[in-house]
Simulated assay, not measured.
Amino acid sequence: MRLLETAYMSRVDYGEAWELQKQLVQEIDREERPDSLLLLEHPPTYTIGTDRHPEHLLYGPEELRRRGIQVFQIDRGGDITYHGPGQLVGYPLIYLAAEGLDLHAYLRSLEEAIISLLAEFGIVGGRKPEYTGVWVDDEKIAAIGVKFNRARTRKGFVTSHGFALNVKRNVEQEGFRGIIPCGITEYGVTSLEKLTGSDQSVEEIADRLLPHFVRVFGYEKTATQSEIRSRQAR
């Protein structure tokens, strides 16, 4: 049985979530924990991936302090993006066996789970061949940036980092103004609230996304972190 451990963690500081990912990657590698999906929000944060372009950060240090935005240079792929309140961030920590490994298929599966969620709201999400992420026409609604961590105890990789889905209208209006998102100048960003006019909470969208994620990735059962801990205690 393929079991997925899930947790909605509300608002978590980016540095804390990054350290937690590193810990869970090691535990999954050692087969001490099943595949996991963390769903959460971050306080205002810019993250800069391995395709580093400092010029895509438009705010200087003083403006960043005034706005209370933290900046992290991290080990995922991609350029700069924004995380903040009103955005659903998902960190799938999944073991991918080396045999038959298709890293591009993993990215397409992340996109497919979000595209399926959008369809519930009558929104036609799609892809752009030259970019990762999920798009509605010429506006990005979900960014994707991942890392494939080589497993140490078995052949394959454990994923980390993941996706960021813009739920609330304030996300597109606030943090994205201070950057050139992913270095893309010709397209904008959008949000679920802007497209639907409905006021959904981030936690509600997390609950609605989960069954799509489970179906796309082929899990047979999910469990919360507390359920996993109680089983281990027995």
Rank of each mutant, 00 (worst) to 15 (best):
Met1Gln: 08
Arg2Glu: 15
Leu3Met: 13
Glu5Ala: 15
Ser10Leu: 08
Ser10Arg: 15
Asp13Thr: 07
Tyr14Ala: 00
Tyr14Arg: 05
Leu20Gly: 11
Leu20Cys: 10
Gln21Tyr: 06
Gln23Val: 14
Gln23Leu: 14
Gln26Ala: 14
Gln26Asp: 13
Arg30Ile: 03
Pro43Arg: 00
Thr45Gln: 01
Tyr46Arg: 04
Ile48Cys: 03
His53Met: 09
Pro61Ala: 00
Pro61Asn: 06
Arg66Gly: 10
Gln70Glu: 12
Arg76His: 05
Gly78Asn: 02
Asp79Leu: 03
Tyr82Trp: 00
Pro85Cys: 01
Gln87Cys: 00
Gln87Thr: 01
Leu88Glu: 10
Leu88Arg: 11
Ile94Arg: 10
Ile94Ala: 09
Leu96Tyr: 11
Ala98Leu: 13
Leu103His: 08
Leu107Cys: 06
Ser109Asp: 13
Ser109Tyr: 05
Glu112Trp: 10
Ile114Trp: 01
Ile115Asn: 07
Ile115Pro: 05
Ile123Phe: 07
Gly125His: 04
Gly126Leu: 12
Glu130Tyr: 02
Glu130Lys: 13
Glu130His: 11
Tyr131Asn: 11
Thr132Lys: 05
Gly133Lys: 06
Asp137Ile: 10
Ile141Phe: 13
Ile141Pro: 13
Ile141Thr: 12
Gly145Phe: 02
Arg150Glu: 13
Ala151Tyr: 09
Arg154Tyr: 13
Gly156Trp: 04
His161Trp: 15
Leu165Cys: 03
Val167Asn: 01
Lys168Trp: 06
Val171Ser: 04
Val171Lys: 01
Pro181Asn: 06
Ile184Asn: 01
Glu186Thr: 11
Thr190Leu: 06
Ser191Met: 08
Leu195Thr: 01
Thr196Cys: 03
Gly197Phe: 07
Asp199Trp: 11
Ser201Val: 03
Ser201Glu: 09
Ser201Tyr: 04
Ile205Phe: 08
Phe213Ala: 09
Arg215Leu: 05
Val216Tyr: 08
Glu220Pro: 08
Lys221Met: 13
Ala223Met: 15
